[in-house]
Design a binder for these strands. Structure first.
Length: 859
RNA sequence: GCGGGCGUGAUGGAAUGGUAGACAUAGCAGACUUAAAAUCUGCGGGCCCCGGUGCCGUGCGGGUUCGAGUCCCGCCGCCCGCACCA
């Protein structure tokens, strides 16, 4: 009897599939198409177990669809631009391109061992000039269509390294390399006009039925449509040209609770006032020494600076309110100015208490709902009920005394407009997408700056604008910008000497259309109309929930923009029909500190466990263990799946990552269990191949019992795969293995059951399945054999056991024919000893019979 | 801070509002074996006047329901995102 030997089986079948071209995607108008896509990886150089989980899930879907007769597109590529390559260049002196392509080669080899159904003929990396050249063509088309523009925006500036920092590179307000305090600096940058699509991107979410609700909710909140009032507070003795402050508020119903007006440190008035006020200039400078990350701003202590100016309340010219510059007001949102209503906003209340400003409630809980309510002016917290709740207005000026916040806001807007105080507006939180990056390793923005002509787009025939190879990474900053000659170019318009743009594109641009490029990866335009029409949309997109907002929103925008420019059909403006967000694989993090107390991360395989705790295997240095977090290259808490593949085979790794944890949930990686998965596959192989040696005649009824169980398994496993319940499919297959091993059925039934089991396992453990299939005389490749179908007649049992509850607690059970009518079920339940005893001769108060499920008797 | 999610035995987890703990891992006991490995069988939430038609039990506290792990409200803990990490 042959033993299960993954090391010999797996390469054999991989070779067979490769030679047969089993997984090459072909347009076939006679079949339904199915495009399954997992978010493509950053080529860190090492496949980690999170990748294995992610790509195995997609592979299960792809293999299942292949078996159900679909023309499947399952491509793979590399999200290859980005910071890590530049960091490697600075740390090790290796060129980012060389480093990246080496990593790609290494990872591709690792991918190859997993037995995935990938069509490698469509592979590309976003750093390939062929890809980013097409991306530059898209940029030029977007520019033509008015979807791109330039404006000033703030960046994190490291004054020592003289370079722009990513938010990730700012730690506690300091640059990660220099340790210098980071400042904000304004640069002219390129923007995509995603805000033009705010309403469209919001309302179209309603049609995405196969997206997780949580992702749609996050996107809705991110886009953040709000209805409010824009109105002006007239300045008393303001500087010239500053007659009033325009504010935006979503709570105009609280206008009579206003106690101050706050403006952003970047507000034009704040900038004007700091010219004459050194203290304010210092305050603003301090505010600008903050990371551009919104999170940092929200967490920072709320500070204000009293400008000494006052404004008049729009309803009462005698009511003057102080004007503060406040560090928590964003210039990017609304008008960069607010009025503060401390009674109904905790942040404003904290601010008012800090600067001794009045607190004026405009509403309080409705009559009869006061409970232990304390007015904020009497020391209570800010009263901020949901806008849907009915409250009682103390200082209302519009609508009823008792009304919901929503009604009050609309009424207030109406009254204000009638009075000529402001106007109702709809706003969105979503900001335009700044795509400029001051870095080398990205897609060059294909424009030229000419003294005479201004900003001139590069000619399409000159694309791609290639990155230069000879670059210097000995200094921080943009290596492209300091290249001696690359910038020098003739103006595409007038031919005079001009300078290339040295900013490159955000890597989110690269990943915002790769799914479309996969449909025609070698086309000499961004897409090919026929291929796009055939393959789009992505039927199933799979990736991490960490991409729930930015990547997915940007891709939705890009698909619309590409449609406007003629690169995608109208049917593809929502590019992902179904989305699944798989959980992350987490792992402990191991850290030591360098001489400047900065963290140095270590791979789990470099850490050894001794009695005295975790230590570095190489030096014995003690290692600090930080609790599990998302596996990331930067934290180095990654596990090498190759070790498992080397030891047990790819099928074991695949089986293991699919079992146990539900795919949408995070899973903590532990080494234990791989052994068990491997044993199980060996058992499956043995039980399946032994079926051929079974006696021709089985025990009475055993064939029928086995086949009945087989059909139930087909049903359950299929449902599991189609609903991303891979762990339950695996569990069901474990159970069926036990059934088969204990069965007394005859040879034919057992071989049939074993072949079916192999088919059901084939999406998860494809090599093992092929081996069993061929051993048991299956026809052709199991990869393309038609998926088994469950016979509905075999799924139902003749008798069912119903639990009988008394007052909701299970007390006994009855076994009845499946179709027994409700009244008879009730009669039999009431006839049980337990129920009769509980009733004690009295009639039941109520009896609930749920056919096929349960009986509940209320006494 | 704001937005979103998650929380069930020692462990991973199962459960259209209907028998909580399927399936598996670790563990324990047994069979086979000179022995080990492999394999097979069984046990497997807690408590107790422990074999009973017994009590408790799905992070904590309330609520809705004939019935709640599941729905609602309020907490606690952990995780993700916050626009220049990808």
């Amino acid at each position: 009897m042959a033993r299960y030997d993954a090391a010999s089986i797996e390469p054999k079948w991989q070779e067979t599939w490769r030679e047969a071209g089993t997984f090459a995607a072909r347009r076939d108008e006679g079949r339904p198409k199915y495009y399954v896509l997992e978010m493509f990886p950053y080529p860190s150089g090492a496949l980690h177990i999170g990748h294995v989980r992610n790509y195995t899930m997609g592979d299960v879907i792809a293999r299942h669809r292949l078996a159900t007769g679909h023309a499947v597109l399952h491509p793979m590529g590399w999200d290859a631009f980005g910071l890590p390559a530049e960091n490697a260049a600075m740390e090790r002196g290796v060129h980012p391109g060389e480093w990246t392509y080496q990593n790609i080669a290494a990872m591709k080899e690792q991918f190859g061992r997993l037995g995935l159904t990938l069509d490698w003929s469509r592979e590309f990396a976003t750093c390939d000039p062929e890809y980013y050249g097409q991306q530059q063509a898209l940029f030029l088309d977007f520019l033509d269509a008015g979807l791109v523009y330039r404006k000033n925006a703030v960046v994190n500036w490291d004054p020592v390294d003289m370079t722009v920092l990513a938010n990730e590179q700012v730690e506690d307000g300091k640059g990660w390399r220099s340790g210098a305090t980071v400042e904000r600096r304004e640069l002219t940058q390129w923007f995509f006009k995603i805000s033009d699509f705010s309403e469209e991107l919001l309302s179209a979410l309603d049609g995405l039925d196969a997206w997780p609700d949580k992702v749609k909710t996050m996107q809705r909140n991110w886009i953040g449509r709000s209805r409010g009032l824009q109105c002006a507070f007239a300045l008393v003795d303001g500087p010239e040209g500053h007659a009033e402050i325009e504010v935006y508020t979503t709570r105009p119903d609280t206008l009579l609770g206003a106690s101050f007006v706050g403006i952003s440190p970047d507000h034009p008035l704040a900038r004007r006032l700091e010219e004459d006020d050194a203290d304010l200039a210092a305050f603003n400078a301090e505010c600008r020494k903050m990371s551009t990350a919104e999170e940092a701003m929200e967490k920072a202590e709320k500070n204000g600076y009293d400008t000494g100016l006052t404004v008049r309340h729009p309803f009462d010219p005698d009511w003057e309110l102080p004007v503060y510059v406040a560090n928590f007001i964003l210039m990017d949102y609304g008008t960069g100015a607010i009025f503060g209503c401390p009674a109904h906003d905790q942040r404003d209340l904290d601010f008012a208490r800090k600067y001794d400003l009045p607190v004026i409630s405009t509403y309080a809980p409705a009559m009869g709902e006061e409970g232990t309510f304390i007015l904020p002016e009497n020391g209570g917290p800010a009263y901020v009920p949901p806008k849907t709740e009915t409250v009682r207005y103390i200082k209302g000026f519009a609508g009823h005394e008792a009304q919901t916040g929503n009604d009050a806001v609309e009424a207030a807007i109406g009254v204000c407009q009638d009075k000529g105080v402001g106007r109702g507006v709809t706003r969105y939180r979503l900001r335009d997408w700044g795509l400029s990056r001051q870095r080398y390793w990205g897609c060059p923005i294909p424009v030229v700056h000419c003294d005479a002509c201004g900003v001139v787009p590069e000619k399409k025939e000159n694309l791609p604008v290639r990155l230069p190879e000879d670059v210097d990474f000995s200094k921080p900053g943009n290596a492209l910008d300091r290249h001696p000659t690359w910038r020098d170019v003739a103006c595409p318009a007038c031919g005079a000497p001009a300078k290339r743009e040295t900013d490159t594109m955000d890597t989110f641009v690269d990943s915002s259309w790769y799914f479309a490029r996969f449909t025609a990866p070698r086309a000499d335009a961004p897409t090919d109309a026929q291929d796009a029409a055939y393959w789009m949309n992505v039927d199933q997109y799979i990736g991490g929930v960490e991409h729930a907002i930015l990547h997915l929103l940007y891709s939705r925008f890009f698909a619309r923009a590409m449609h406007i420019c003629g690169h995608l059909p109208a049917s593809a403006v929502e590019p992902f029909d179904a989305l699944f967000t798989q959980g992350m694989v987490t792992h402990e993090i191991y850290v030591t500190r360098d001489e400047r107390d900065r963290p140095v991360y270590h791979l789990p395989k470099d850490v050894e466990w001794t009695e005295s705790g975790a230590r570095l295997g190489s030096t014995g240095e003690a290692v600090e263990v930080i609790p599990s977090a998302k596996m990331s290259k930067s934290k180095k808490n990654v596990v090498d799946p190759l070790e498992i593949i080397d030891r047990y085979g790819a099928d074991t790794a695949r089986w293991f990552v699919l079992s146990d944890s539900p795919p949408e949930r995070d899973v903590e990686w532990t080494a234990s269990g791989a052994e068990a998965a491997s044993k199980h596959l060996a058992r499956v192989f043995r039980i399946a191949t032994e079926a051929a040696d079974a006696p021709a005649e089985g025990a009475d009824g055993a064939d029928q019992a086995l086949l009945r169980e087989m059909h139930k398994t087909i049903h359950d496993v299929t449902v599991g795969i189609e609903s991303f319940g891979f762990n339950t499919s695996v569990a069901r297959l474990y159970a069926f293995t036990n059934t088969l091993s204990k069965s007394d059925a005859g040879r034919d039934a057992r071989m049939r059951a074993a072949r079916t089991m192999a088919q059901l396992m084939s999406p998860m453990t494809p090599h093992l399945a092929e081996e069993i299939w061929s051993t048991l005389g299956g026809e052709g490749l199991i990869a393309t054999a038609p998926w088994p179908e469950a016979d509905p007649a075999m799924l139902v049992d003749d008798e069912v056991t119903l639990p009988v509850q008394i007052n909701g607690k299970r007390r006994t059970e009855i076994t009845v024919p499946r179709d027994l009518d409700r009244a008879e079920v009730e009669r039999r339940a009431l006839d049980t000893h337990a129920v009769k005893k509980a009733l004690d001769g009295n009639p039941p108060k109520k009896t609930i019979v749920v056919p096929g499920r349960i009986v509940n008797v209320v006494v």
